[in-house]
């Protein structure tokens, strides 16, 4: 059974951008360019929402595989596709 360690590291790395990027206000405190009348400041933050979700969703799938390996290594029963005990 391959180790889960590299996967947990990937999960950790995937969770960094959605925490750090929204806090760098200097990146997006501008009016131009506008989109549908929204200043850049606003539409960029709205855009961050699906982008951040893409990172957490990816992390979710990687974590699921990592959990599977951890459970197999400890001899625990497998989880079903929803990540629950059968």
């Amino acid at each position: 059974m391959p180790s889960s360690r590299p996967l947990w590291i990937i999960v950790g790395i995937l969770l960094i951008p959605p925490i750090v990027v929204p806090l760098l206000v200097g990146l997006y405190d501008k009016d131009d360019p506008r989109l549908w009348g929204f200043p850049f400041y606003y539409w960029f933050q709205f855009l961050l929402i699906p982008c951040a979700a893409a990172f957490t969703v990816t992390a979710y799938y990687v974590a699921k595989e990592a959990v599977r390996r951890d459970r197999a290594a400890r001899g625990l029963p497998e989880l079903d596709s929803k990540g629950e005990r059968r």
Binding site: I16, P18, I19, P22, L23, L48, A52, A53
Partner: peptide, 17 residues
């Protein structure tokens, strides 16, 4: 007041962890 948006973006990776 619009910080509510980055706040509710940042909170989910934290929950996840």
């Amino acid at each position: 007041g619009f910080f509510a948006v980055p706040y509710t973006i940042v909170v989910y990776p934290i929950i996840f962890a």
